[in-house]
Amino acid sequence: MGSKNKLKRFKENEGFGNVIQPKREEVISGNFTLKGQWQEEFGNQNPIVLELGCGKGEYTVGLAQKFPNKNFIGIDIKGARFWKGAKEALADNLVNVRFLRTQIELIDQLFAEDEVAEIWITFPDPQIKFKRTKHRLTNPVFLDKYKTILKNNGEIHLKTDSEFMHGYTIGVLQGSAFEIVYSNHDVYRNHGSPKEVLEIQTFYEKQYLDKGKPITYLKFRVK
């Protein structure tokens, strides 16, 4: 994507009512006003669901269409990517969608304890090299942050083309504060996955499927 297109999208994001872009200093100083107030932001008491590393926002928008009685927030630091999802949500009048431009490492400073019902992690970078372990979105540090903001029995969904990421996460969950609810190593060949896992596909997922790569899915929840 050219720099002109990026700048254009950044500018459009500023005018989108469903895009929230707090400054890092605002968040880490504890002055982010939406923390603990997300249901008020949506104007209802419906459950809050996050998509971490939402990319173009396909899952955030797709889930919002399927579940109008839930509120969905796509989170990514790359605003030029989720511009597409934000624009689509506005065009479709999806009032249960927001996009939050921020770093995922700040998530426990953006949401209050027990404020979130579910988290989706869709096709994250597996960060295979050992020195990149701290960046894996299901490493123990991130899981502790998720546990803080999730409600009791709150669920996390991991959908990925990376068997490494799938297996790594299962290993990390052993003896943790989470329990595995469901695991599938090839969702399109092995039956049993929820419809929202099969019926919503991201841009990258379609590329992986064209190459014949199996897509894995893991659901786990706070004990």
Rank of each mutant, 00 (worst) to 15 (best):
V95N: 13
Q109L: 14
F203C: 09
I121K: 05
G15N: 10
L110N: 12
A117L: 11
G17K: 02
L173H: 01
L106M: 11
V49K: 09
K159L: 10
A64R: 04
F10W: 12
G62P: 08
T169G: 05
I104L: 12
G15Q: 08
F82V: 02
A91E: 15
I121S: 05
K23E: 14
E51R: 07
E51A: 02
E25Y: 06
S176G: 00
D114R: 12
T202V: 06
Q127D: 13
E41Y: 13
L50S: 07
N96G: 02
N93C: 11
K78V: 04
N152Y: 14
Y182D: 15
K84S: 15
T33I: 13
M165V: 05
E155A: 10
I77A: 13
E115N: 07
E14N: 04
A64K: 10
G43N: 06
G167M: 14
Y188K: 04
T160A: 06
T60F: 03
S3C: 12
I73N: 00
N5L: 15
L198V: 03
D125W: 10
L143P: 00
N18H: 06
G175L: 00
L52R: 03
E12L: 10
K145I: 02
E155K: 12
K56F: 12
K129L: 03
K147Q: 13
W83A: 05
K223M: 04
K84D: 14
K70H: 12
I20F: 01
E205H: 07
E26T: 03
T169Q: 08
N44R: 08
